[in-house]
Simulated assay, not measured.
Amino acid sequence: MTNQAPYPIGTPGVPWGPAEVAAWLSRQARQRSYEAEVLTVIERLRPRFDVVQYGQLDYAPDSYPLLAIRSRGWREELPCVLVTGGVHGYETSGVHGALRFAERHADEYAGKVNLLIAPCVSPWAYERIHRWNAQAIDPNRSFREDSPAAESAALMRLVEPFRERILVHVDLHETTDTDESEFRPALAARDGVPFVPGEIPDGFYLVGDTANPQPAFQQAVIAAVAEVTHIAPADAHGEIIGSPVVAPGVINYALRPLGLCAGITDAPYKTTTEVYPDSPRATAEQCNQAQAAAVRAAIGFALAHS
């Protein structure tokens, strides 16, 4: 049982309908600028990379171009690496970690791999520091055929021509204190189910694929990130966010059945990063560094073992 007050929208035990979604939407306010903080960085990269618009996200009165950064001199014989960030818009280092990797490290892989980087999959949610899109849909449960989320559908269309050639996919995320204070209570209210409190892990961890876990790959990424920030320990049950810890800092999910972004390709090497930006032991800069370090370690391992 929990003494937490009911979520302020909806009736406990009753899934939301259009009125509740509209009430939730009316509470969402722009808190930062996708144009100023993301698009300007991408524009700086145009002299070095190809920038492609792979969709337009329209939530009236707002509209957002969906942009990806692509290797200049793309070569069909090279393996492809996919980096995604901002699937959950509130997970800031996912976005800025992807941009940091593009700005500071992507040139290292010229002639070795084709890079495709989608740094901010959910710009509406980025501006509002939220997990969902404007329709109260979680894009990271929506990577499936006939997706209800425009963000997810657009990314799948972008990736489809290269899907079978992708060697590595790193999807950059965060686990934050607001997961427990706002987003999980909102999810329970939206779905008309009881909210069961959980525990937020203090540190970085990875989510591998139950169907193809690649433990050596995951541990190589963990080892690289450990040089930048601390790794989340298991809780008293030997778990992280309710899943068994299979190696230090690693849990596994059924990525594709759950409709998660990291499951959109058949890449043999795939992982979802989770940084904890609210830790007193980590700064925003460390979080961005950790995300970039994870991408670099993932590519390095895959190239060495392919």
Score class of each variant (00 low, 15 high):
W16A: 07
D235N: 15
R44F: 01
V168W: 06
R30W: 10
A223I: 06
E160G: 07
E108T: 14
A254C: 05
E164Y: 12
T178W: 12
I9K: 03
I9N: 07
L167G: 05
I299L: 08
S122H: 02
T271I: 11
L116M: 11
L158T: 13
A247M: 11
V87C: 10
R32S: 06
A29F: 14
A267Y: 09
A297V: 04
G242W: 08
Y34H: 03
S279V: 01
T176R: 02
Y64A: 04
D191H: 12
I251T: 13
P15L: 11
P280T: 01
Q291I: 13
L258E: 11
I251A: 04
L187Y: 11
V207R: 06
E77M: 04
P148F: 11
S142Q: 05
D177C: 12
H105A: 13
G263F: 02
T229F: 00
F217H: 02
A224S: 14
E20R: 10
P277R: 07
E108G: 12
F143L: 03
H96A: 04
G263S: 01
Q286D: 15
P277V: 10
Y7E: 02
P257M: 02
A234P: 05
S147D: 13
L99S: 03
T2S: 13
P148K: 00
R141W: 09
A226P: 14
A223Q: 13
P194E: 02
G86W: 09
G259F: 03
A290I: 08
V196N: 04
S33T: 10
V275T: 15
R48S: 12
D191A: 08
Q28A: 11
R72C: 06
